[in-house]
């Protein structure tokens, strides 16, 4: 097994997902099979190879820092599950 129970907990937490006890063995085994599959990359010599993040040559793209019209506040909030006084509203973040 390449993936430990602890790896799975870390990944689930980073992903903001819960994995139930019933799902656990299957999720673990699938992740393991996947990592075994992509192991073929290790056969490739990449010692002098630069990584490619974008396929086409692209440098930093700058634009003038100007104020332009943007989405109306009410419209921006129109899909909010919960809002109050022009703000998004969420459950408490900090302990009382």
């Amino acid at each position: 097994m390449k993936v430990t129970q602890q790896d799975l907990d870390t990944v689930a937490s980073l992903s903001r997902l819960r994995i139930s006890d019933e799902e656990r063995p299957e999720v673990l085994s699938q992740l393991d099979k996947f990592l075994t599959y992509v192991d073929n990359l290790q056969q490739v010599d990449t010692s002098n190879v630069e990584p490619t993040t974008y396929a086409l040559p692209m440098k930093n793209v700058f634009r003038a820092d100007e104020v332009k019209p943007s989405l109306d506040r009410e419209l921006a909030l129109s899909n909010a599950p919960l809002k109050e006084d022009g703000y998004f509203k969420v459950p408490r973040v900090l302990e009382e």
Binding site: V38, L41, Q42, V44, T46, V49, E50, P51, T52, T53, A55
Partner: peptide, 9 residues
Amino acid sequence: LKALKVRTL
């Protein structure tokens, strides 16, 4: 990172 290098190749 390995995948990004293979992408270059």
